[in-house]
Design a protein around this nucleic acid. Structure first.
Lengths: 259, 259
DNA sequence: GCCGTTCGTTCGACAATGCCGAACCGCCGG
DNA sequence: CCGGCGGTTCGGCATTGTCGAACGAACGGC
C-alpha cells in the first residue's frame, strides 16, 4: 500500500501536506514545519510563500496560518450539494418539533461530512453539537450508515477497504459482515440508528436523501441516550424522519420535474 | 505588474487556478478546462487526478467538481478567527432586538470576508442575505470601512494599491482622498456607514472589533433603505452597535485577562 | 451497425523547475 | 558585543512537470 507511484504532481501533494500540518498545529513557523515534515527549511519557505501569494495562507508575526480562501471554496462546494437546499426546511421543522439536534450530511471521498447542523430547544452538551465541515467515518454514524445502505455492495466494499472500520466505543461495528447485515436491515426499514456507536451516551436516527436515482446525503436527528429511548427512539423518531424524507423527495421532484 | 518572477512554485499556482476555474464554471471536464487555461489536456488531467487523489476534487460522471475538504480547512480557518466567538452572542441579541440582518466579518488578504450572518425577523430580500465565505472589497462596505479605519494609513494604502477602488453604485467611494476623509470620520465617530455604496437600496452600520491592540474584524447591521433611515439609521443603530462593541470588548478582556 | 466525433486517459522524452545546502539578515537575551 | 534562533535569499544539480501523440470508450446520426 501507499504505492502512489501513479503520476502525481508531487508539489501539490506536498502543499496539501503542509496545509494539513498547519491546521493540525494551529499555525506554525518555517523551521518547525521543516522539522516535522523532513523537508528543507528553504523548501518549506518556498511552499509557504507561494501559498501566501495565492492568498491561501496568512502570516501572523512569524507563524503561518490557514487563510480564508478555503472558506470560499468550501462554502461553494457545500452549497453546490443539492441535499443542503433540499433538506433544510423539512429538517428545520423536525428540529423545532422534537427539540433535538439535526444534521445534514453527505459522503465525500469515503467520509461523512457535516454540511449543516441545527440545535433545537434542548440545547445540549457542546460535545454533541455538529461542526460544519467535520469529516467522520461513515460506519460509526447513523447518517453514514444510511448513505452506505443506499450504495451498492461494491461501492461499500471499496470504501471499507480504503478507510477500514476503526473502533470508537464498544458498540462500534468493526467487522464487515456485521456491517453488511446492518445495511440490509436499514434497507428494509428505511432508517438507520446509531446506538452509542460513535460517542458513549449519544444516539441518533437517520435516513438517506435521494434525488432522482442518486443518493445525495442524509438527515439525522440525534441526542442523549437518556432522552432518546423507548418508543420515542424506536418508533416515533424513525417515523418522523421517514415523513421528512417523503416531504423532501416530493419537493425535489417538483422542483426538477421529469428530469 | 503581474511580475511574479519571485520564486514561486508554478504548479501550486496552477493548481489553484484550476480550482478557481472549477468553481467559476460549476464543475468542468478536462478538455473544457484545458482550452480555457491554455494548457495541455494531459497536463490538466494530471492536475485533476492529483487533486482527486488528495481528496480536494470529486468526479461526477465526466466532470470534476470541488470537494468538501476545502470546507474542512475553511471552517477551521473561520473558527480560528477570534472575532467569531467574541461577537456572536452580542450580535445575536442585537439582531433579535432590531430584526435586521447581522454580519460578522474580517479582513483577509485585503478583502472583506463574511464569517457569519444571521437574519432577524424582517426576513428580507434574498439579495441582502450574507453568504459565509463571500469575499468583497473593503471600501464599499460598512464592515470593511470600519476595519480600514482601525488600520494605519500605510496599511490602508497598501490594500488600496493592490486592490483598487472599484465602483458598485453611484455612491461608492472611488478616490483615495475621499476614502481617507471617510476613515477619519469613522475614527472620530466610532461607527461606519454604508449608504447604498455597494447595492442600491441597501444601507448598513458597522464597527470594528478589537482584541487587545489588534483589530480582529467587525460587526454590521444592515437592511433596506426604506427601513434604515432617519434617526433609526443615524442615531439608534450606531448607538446599539457601539453598545455591542463595548460588551464584546469587556467580555474579551475578561476571557483573557492581563494578556 | 458502422463510422466520425468527442470525451477521458496513458505514455515517452526533453527541458524546465522544484529542491536542497549554504550563506545572509534581523531580532533577542546575555 | 556576541551567539543563537528565527525567516529569507541564492545558485546549481537532478528531478519531475509538461506536452504531443496515440489509445479506448461512449455516443449519435446517417
Amino acid at each position: 500500500m501507499a504505492d502512489d507511484s501513479s503520476r502525481k504532481i508531487k508539489s501539490i501533494a506536498a502543499s496539501y501536506r503542509i496545509v494539513g500540518k498547519l491546521q493540525a498545529l494551529d499555525g506554525a513557523g518555517v523551521t518547525e514545519l521543516a522539522e516535522q515534515m523532513d523537508l528543507g527549511k528553504s523548501t518549506v519557505y518556498q511552499y509557504l510563500s507561494t501559498l501566501h501569494d495565492e492568498g491561501y495562507v496568512v502570516k501572523r508575526g512569524h507563524t503561518y496560518h490557514l487563510g480564508l480562501k478555503y472558506l470560499h471554496h468550501g462554502m461553494y462546494a457545500r452549497n453546490e450539494r443539492p441535499v443542503v437546499d433540499l433538506a433544510q426546511p423539512s429538517l428545520e421543522t423536525l428540529v423545532d418539533e422534537t427539540g433535538e439536534v439535526g444534521w445534514i450530511t453527505c459522503e465525500d471521498h469515503g467520509k461523512l461530512v457535516t454540511l449543516d447542523s441545527m440545535v433545537g430547544e434542548h440545547d445540549i452538551n457542546e460535545k454533541f453539537r455538529g461542526q460544519v465541515g467535520n469529516r467522520e467515518y461513515l460506519h460509526a454514524h447513523a447518517g453514514g450508515k444510511a448513505i452506505l445502505a443506499a450504495y451498492s455492495d461494491d461501492r461499500v466494499t471499496d470504501i471499507v477497504e480504503s478507510h477500514g472500520l476503526p473502533v470508537y466505543t464498544e458498540h462500534t461495528i468493526t467487522d464487515r459482515e456485521r456491517l453488511f447485515d446492518e445495511l440490509d436491515r436499514i434497507r428494509e426499514e428505511g432508517v438507520a440508528f446509531n446506538d452509542e456507536e460513535a460517542i458513549r451516551g449519544y444516539r441518533a436516527v437517520s435516513a438517506a436523501v435521494t434525488q432522482g436515482e442518486e443518493t445525495v446525503g442524509s438527515i439525522t436527528i440525534g441526542g442523549p441516550k437518556n432522552r432518546l429511548n423507548g418508543e420515542y427512539y424506536q418508533e416515533e423518531l424513525p417515523s418522523l424522519i421517514r415523513g421528512a424524507i417523503n416531504e423532501i423527495e416530493l419537493r425535489g421532484s417538483v422542483e426538477s420535474p421529469w428530469n
